[in-house]
Amino acid sequence: MSEPLLQVEGLETTFFTKAGALKALDGVSYTIHRGEVLGIVGESGCGKSVTSYSLMGLLDHPGKVTGGRALLNGVDLLSLTEEEYQKVRAKKIAMIFQEPMTALNPVLTIGQQIDEQLFQHTDLTPAQARKHSIEMLAKVGIPSPEERYSNYPHQLSGGMRQRAMIAMALALGPEFLIADEPTTALDVTIQAQILELFQSLQKEMGMTVQFITHDLGVISEISDRVMVMYAGRSAELAPTEELFRSPRHPYTASLVRSIPVLGQRVDRLPTIEGVVPSLMERPDGCAFQNRCPYQTAECAQAVPPFTELSPGHFVACFHPLEAK
């Protein structure tokens, strides 16, 4: 496997609220290799989006990164000042958001928004910037890009807006891209179009991607490796095919079983009893213990370490399932 591009170690993000300090991320660690797509999957509140915002330096008050490192090519992103961050964002790392309608500026045209970052980071003249932006729009498959260049976001359909946002994120050829639920708001046939585009661009530009979604189907088709998160911690990380064939963390195993799969009929879906604990009531030790069929006294005493059980397969559990 090639060298790592991004190394996240013990990432910890805390929200300082009136109710007290809440650790949204409590020691998240993973590595992404150059040219790889790492999928991050988990349910609402598991911290998958906070992880991205922390890496991008986009956390709003009262959220703050309170520990850990995130080395991109050896440079710790978490120690950058805001000015240093502005030089890195868009150029080295870029992000695509879930809802293009809120992520795009409604009072600027699509073209102005792509041009803006070109002016920020390059010496292109307005004419050159325009040419480059139109090329980007064409590249992401937007029909009649010259016209679309002067359109406002509301004049585009959901799928087209998402394409425009991809064009914007890739305009400066970043080496690392974070995609946060980029297809969740789209219909399945449009989702398939966007995923196809995304894959071909990723290959063509040799990008490294962190792809976040709650959809196990999407993650399974697009990622080389998958990390499952639960209540602000990494639960399991493995190559995609292995993770779904032989999940070792009880949470991953139950999650995979609880979704209806086309062509596999069951009378009742196996469920995970209870709900994800809120950050305020996360139990001591393993966060999953109260919903776990394999729970023992040990689980309440310490947080299980994220250990490599077999090459490339990491699990945070004291009682991992047998490998299949």
Binding site: S220, E221, F244
Partner: peptide
């Protein structure tokens, strides 16, 4: 529809 558990494939 994306399929679960068949591993990465070209969309």
């Amino acid at each position: 529809i994306p399929r679960v558990g068949f591993g990465k494939r070209e969309m």
